[in-house]
């Protein structure tokens, strides 16, 4: 399944590159939103099929509430560390990683209020985060446990990577993933502008 997901994306990129006029991009972005809604609707229906969901929710450890914050902190710190080999300003690297996979918003925020090149980098890095997540979630779920499979998707654990998490873990983890993805999605428009403001001081 993963192989076909990646192939589908590559096919889309090729189709877009060779057959689609850039003027039409906003239309496809709108189609993207509809596809996203269809996806979430389908995940909702599937959650509804799950038996004893209430009991599963109540038995969830309270520490799960910390999940998105652990993911956020670890993402940003890891990016700052790997930046030693890249050479951006550490705060710039932190801002790029604070997209948590939400490529459209993080790219836009950085490009508009800071620097176009860093905005494009943020866009690409977060697209790649989503892609890497799609590829490795099945492996992570098997090797590192269900909850760890929520981490790679970051903010996308509430939409794009949610069905993949759901397919490879259980209903309880799916709920935790939706919660974590939602919190991270809310954090993006707060943390990215803050870091950008901070980065501007050093520029």
């Amino acid at each position: 399944m993963t192989k076909y997901l990646v192939l589908t994306l590559i096919l889309g990129i090729l189709c877009g590159h060779f057959f689609v006029d850039p003027i039409l991009i906003p239309r496809f972005e709108m189609a993207l939103e509809w596809a996203l809604l269809l996806l979430l609707f389908a995940v909702g229906v599937e959650l509804g099929f799950t038996k004893h969901l209430g009991r599963q929710l109540r038995s969830m450890p309270r520490a799960v509430l910390l999940l998105p914050f652990v993911i956020a902190l670890a993402s940003v710190l890891s990016a700052v560390i790997v930046n030693l080999f890249i050479g951006l300003h550490p705060i710039e690297a932190a801002a790029v990683a604070s997209g948590f996979g939400w490529y459209s918003l993080s790219g836009l925020l950085i490009a508009q209020s800071y620097d176009t090149a860093l905005g494009t980098l943020a866009f690409l890095a977060n697209v790649m985060r989503e892609l890497i997540a799609i590829v490795i979630i099945p492996f992570v779920a098997r090797r590192f446990g269900y909850l760890s499979a929520v981490a790679p998707g970051g903010a996308t654990a509430m939409d794009v990577t949610l069905p993949i998490i759901s397919r490879n873990t259980d209903a309880q983890t799916t709920i935790a993933a939706f919660y974590s993805g939602t919190v991270l999605t809310l954090l993006v428009p707060i943390i990215v502008p803050l870091l950008i403001k901070w980065a501007q001081v050093f520029r």
Binding site: L9, L14, F28
Partner: peptide, 10 residues
């Protein structure tokens, strides 16, 4: 993913 690819490729 297909539509996302199109928006990137275009």
């Amino acid at each position: 993913l297909f539509i996302m690819g199109i928006t990137i490729g275009a």
